[in-house]
Design a protein around this nucleic acid. Structure first.
Lengths: 253, 253
DNA sequence: TATCTTTACGTCAAAAATACATAAAGCATC
DNA sequence: GATGCTTTATGTATTTTTGACGTAAAGATA
């Protein structure tokens, strides 16, 4: 038994030592503004190259906590809804030398740096509450509309695509309330669903279904300053919405 | 710019060096036999403690490839359907000292070993095709029914629960064909859906819906040796089923 | 041949999804 | 202040899907 323990320990250590990896997080921060889904991007200093916000996970730090920390630094938000959605761990994720060149780093860094495994998170945040803040490596932090994304660094175009695909599929289970302000109009909510789903919904049927689900409270106020008939303002019913999200019972087939 | 590059490189390296982690994979291998969902478990040598099959990811190895490799060694299967479903990366995932003791390893190993981040995969495999094989650390590899799982090592009970929850939610998008043999009867398919969903389905309505989806081809054969009326054998239609899975269009609300 | 249990499949009612039309509010303009 | 424009708000009729339920046929056993 002694022998067994010894050899097991040895084997274990050996396997584990082989399994040391650089682990990073990439965050797709979704916002919603003027009827469009936006994502938060960073521009690398002295270049015109953009990438997702991200960072490294520290030793003994929970990976979820790391994602929260990274995003807090970029957005100024205290409470962030975050969702793991994919592990990007292909042996070759992107052309490293090309990438280092685009961001003006010495190419030999790419030899030093082994492949990094990245954990994909997406966040749902309230556009207006965010104060975009660049970090040490970047000189701009801005919202981009999903429709006109530039050619991003690393494999970040793919990461955004996978994030969106996941959000779409999991939509009934995701608290989209985080994407909207405290109060909002019914057409705004409809447009949000439409842009995530990527297809138009019939307003009358949308109203009916949302009303029936009971997730909304209608306030007495109406949105002022609209060019035409001013719509009612709604808020999510905190006593109903979480349960509907947990059950995934509000869906548009 | 030189200075900038220098400091960026420095910053980058520093952050990255902090972000070195032990990365492992834990696999929940789902099989289906005699109307029950089973998972493959390993018993640690010289103990009566069980855990999920797992392993470490090697340097420069794709994480998906690592999962395939690990499972090939345990199951003997060449083709395995695998699905990432969660990252287990809490700062404290389980009581390490207690765990090392249960598997008879020196407790000081737990000091040497930092927390390990684990990538959760589940596999859908055909029960009868699997040849369970223990590894160096284990002396048994066996199927366990989901209903009577023992108290597993590490946080593996939780991992199985999360895997099942994910499988259930994603069921319309998952190719459950992998859980069944080449041909099978309609009641068998129904029982599979019932056990994954955790609730009974009406046989007549199930028939109707599956028939309407077109995913099955009925063969001319019937299953012999059944005590009563012998049921027809079906196979998945390879021209239809993948598309239905991609669209997630076969669901039981 | 009668009995038993499972398979196979049809019908009907309820519910949900879909298509569609019209009135009312608010602003702008005349 | 009346008219026109555009958006909001909501009702109804039709089709499709879901859900409940009954019954005949097959195969083994006695």
């Amino acid at each position: 038994m002694k022998d067994f323990n010894h050899s097991v320990t040895h084997y274990f250590k050996q396997e584990a030592e082989q399994s040391i990896h650089y682990l990073s997080i990439d965050c797709v921060v979704f916002g919603f503004h003027e009827g469009r889904i936006r994502v938060l991007l960073l521009r690398w200093k002295g270049t015109s190259e953009w990438s997702l916000p991200g960072g490294f996970i520290r030793k003994a730090e929970s990976v979820d906590a790391a994602a929260v920390r990274i995003l807090r630094e970029r957005t100024g938000l205290q409470q962030i809804f975050l969702q793991q959605f994919h592990i990007f761990g292909d042996a070759v994720r992107y052309n490293q030398e090309d990438t280092w060149q685009r961001i003006g780093l010495p190419v030999d860094l790419s030899k030093w740096s082994e492949r990094t495994i990245s954990l994909g998170y997406y966040a749902l945040v309230e556009y207006a509450e965010v104060t975009p803040r660049p970090d040490l490596l970047t000189d701009a932090c801005d919202w981009w509309s999903l429709e006109d994304l530039p050619n991003l660094l690393f494999d970040h175009n793919r990461i955004i695509a996978v994030a969106l695909e996941n959000l779409r599929r999991q939509l009934p289970y995701q608290p989209v309330s985080h994407l909207l302000p405290e109060t909002f109009t019914m057409p705004e909510l409809q447009r949000l669903y439409e842009t995530i789903l990527g297809r138009p919904l019939d307003a009358r049927n949308f109203y009916k279904k949302v009303q029936a689900s009971g997730i909304l409270q209608r306030t007495d106020e109406r949105r002022k300053g609209t060019p035409y008939k001013s719509p009612y303002l709604y808020r999510f019913d905190p006593g109903v919405y979480p349960e509907v999200v947990r059950e995934g019972s509000l869906s548009f087939p």
